[in-house]
């Protein structure tokens, strides 16, 4: 192994992307979505994508806004505190995007089935509802089945495995061997990484393996499961990374306002994604003053507001 190990620059990430691939992305609502990797994915031109998502609203919304999303297996996409993902929703309403609905646990269990190498995962939720009764693009019998327990102790819903081609994950820190640590909530990252064929991780910080070994309990994905690591400080912006910075509510608001019109959203994507030469230019465009203001407070875990605790 070379000294750089699995560490690659962002420009090399597109070699993992293909038209028509299925994709899953880490994060939950305002937290740790792999936004810099996602912007690179959109810049790469990969299209006809299938998303396997839980609550990664920005990923779904940007893929929909960029016109590269064909299908989504998912449970809930919305901008918490703002409202629904408009471009994604309008894509569904216009028939451009096909969807297959789940409850959160339904998505988690399908990814878990893949992660554990099982033909199905039994679960309790979703039974009796249109989520299992009304098919989207997937035949209902391939999605789930209401089965009797072989032990004679009731019935469960069996859901089939979902195996994304690629998982993109943004984490707190990683080493060159691909050992990945994440503080705070971990969303569905563990299941996504274990289910996916290829795992690409971006991290706020690249640390020595000794640092990982000192607190192995923080490791969420061991190096043996990771294909590439990219060093991308503020790589989750405008979402946050616990222990580093919180979500950028202004940026989120600006996008949300732009998402009301297709022209504005195109401009937003051109400005912040397509015409952005690289991640560093992106950070410069956001501005150091803004980035610094998002830094979390050690004891609070989120950004301190002036006067709030005086």
């Amino acid at each position: 192994m070379t000294s750089s190990g699995k560490l690659i620059p962002l420009e090399e990430v597109p070699r993992f992307f293909r038209d028509g691939m299925s994709l899953t992305a880490g994060g939950f609502a305002h937290s740790h979505q792999p936004m810099a990797l996602l912007r690179e994915l959109i810049r790469s031109g990969a299209k006809n994508l299938t998303l396997m998502g839980v609550a990664e609203c920005w990923v779904a919304e940007f893929l929909a806004a960029a016109g590269v999303l064909d299908r989504a297996y998912f449970s809930n996409f919305m901008f918490e505190g703002f409202g629904r993902c408009r471009q994604f929703s309008e894509g569904v309403e216009a028939g451009r995007i096909e969807v297959e609905d789940h409850s959160h646990f339904g998505m988690v269990c399908r990814l878990q089935a893949s992660a554990l190498g099982l033909p199905f995962m039994p679960m309790r939720a979703m039974a009796g509802t249109d989520i299992v009764a009304v098919p989207g693009f997937e035949p209902a019998e391939e999605k789930s089945s209401f089965i009797a327990s072989p032990f004679g102790n009731g019935h469960v819903t069996a859901v089939s495995p979902l195996k994304p081609d690629v998982a993109i994950i943004h984490a707190a820190r990683a080493d060159r061997l691909g050992n990945v640590q994440l503080f705070g909530t971990t969303s569905v990252v563990e299941e996504q990484a274990r289910a996916a064929g290829t795992v690409i991780v971006s991290a706020e910080e690249i640390v020595e393996t000794d640092v990982i070994r000192r607190q192995p309990e923080l490791t969420i994905i061991p190096g043996l499961m990771v294909d590439a690591v990219v060093h991308l400080p503020y790589g989750a912006h405008p979402t946050g990374v616990y222990g580093y910075y919180e979500h950028d509510a202004d940026h989120l608001g600006a996008y949300y306002a732009a998402s009301r019109s297709s022209g504005d959203v195109r401009d937003f994507l051109r400005c912040w994604v397509r015409d952005m030469p690289d991640h560093w230019a992106y950070l410069d465009a956001v501005g150091m003053a803004k980035l610094m203001s998002l830094r979390t407070d050690p004891a609070l875990g989120y950004a301190r507001r002036e006067g709030a605790h005086a």
Binding site: H104, V108, M123, T185, S187
Partner: peptide, 30 residues
Amino acid sequence: RELAMGVGDYKLAHGSTKIAGTAYALSLLQ
């Protein structure tokens, strides 16, 4: 201590006794 913008907001995590993943939280339901 402060109202959160959503369940992904770090304001919600303050003082928590465990921080886990979505699968863990949902498994508590099941």
